[in-house]
Design a protein around this nucleic acid. Structure first.
Lengths: 126, 126
DNA sequence: TCCTTGGATTGACATTGGTCGATGCAATGT
DNA sequence: ACATTGCATCGACCAATGTCAATCCAAGGA
């Protein structure tokens, strides 16, 4: 899988308006549509989130008192193998939603503050 | 593809807290994580949105003055074949983001009001 | 009636994505 | 030094997804 870092999305400007087709079926465009590169970027972020296991991972991490969870927390609650969970964690880290810190034998994952809200905001504004 | 109707998401309640593992690496959970069914539902909605072409389609439809666009508007602006665009439109309709109305030879697509904001809201609350 | 046109459906294809078993690796305990 | 433990990586497999050419269908227009 090739989820590259996409956040933050806030520095991607809107594209210019496209030429308005004057076909019979068309009505005028009130504002500019999203720029293709911006659509690509947002789609990459949404793809990283669009999986039940990854949403649950994010929720479990965010629900922890210190917003930090180790892989063992996740293997307990998700009925998935450890390699699969590790894979999903990598996807979320690569997409910029989680960060990883290793202490001793354990890896701890935490939310990147505002990353989820940023995507939600961009999405609502599309 | 099998995107079933998932919106609105607001009637899906949160699940109960999971048993807290008392392993050495764990910290206490401050609140309940998302329920698996809720994660499935949200993931289906996000999957429908997680494509650059579909995001652009939504944006083009929403940008129209009357929030309505026909397929010819989309084939003009997207470098995709007509069957592909028709396919993406079906995904968005099935997921509850667009509605279709046919007048004469043309099909017009409009946004389902609040559908995008609903997903964005649920996402930010995960 | 026939032809044209807008758009949906079908079928096929290549690519991507989710999953797991096996393995590797670093840190800790004995 | 050796065994154990927690977790990442690799390789393989199958299911799901995005794309298009070909086709079909309905609505108008000649």
């Amino acid at each position: 899988m090739t989820f590259t870092q996409t956040l933050p999305l806030t520095d991607i400007s809107r594209g210019v308006a496209y030429g308005q087709a004057d076909a019979a079926c068309s009505s005028p465009s009130a504002r500019a549509a999203i720029a293709p590169e911006r659509a690509d970027s947002l789609a990459r972020s949404l793809k990283a989130l669009a999986d039940p296991a990854r949403l649950r991972i994010i929720s479990i991490v965010a629900a922890h008192a210190d917003a930090e969870a180790c892989v063992c927390d996740l293997t307990d609650q998700l009925t998935l193998s450890q390699p699969t969970i590790s894979h999903h964690l990598k996807v979320l880290v690569d997409a910029g939603f989680l960060t990883r810190v290793k202490r001793g034998t354990w890896s701890y994952y935490s939310m990147v503050p505002g990353s989820l809200e940023s995507v939600a905001g961009v999405l609502a504004a599309v």
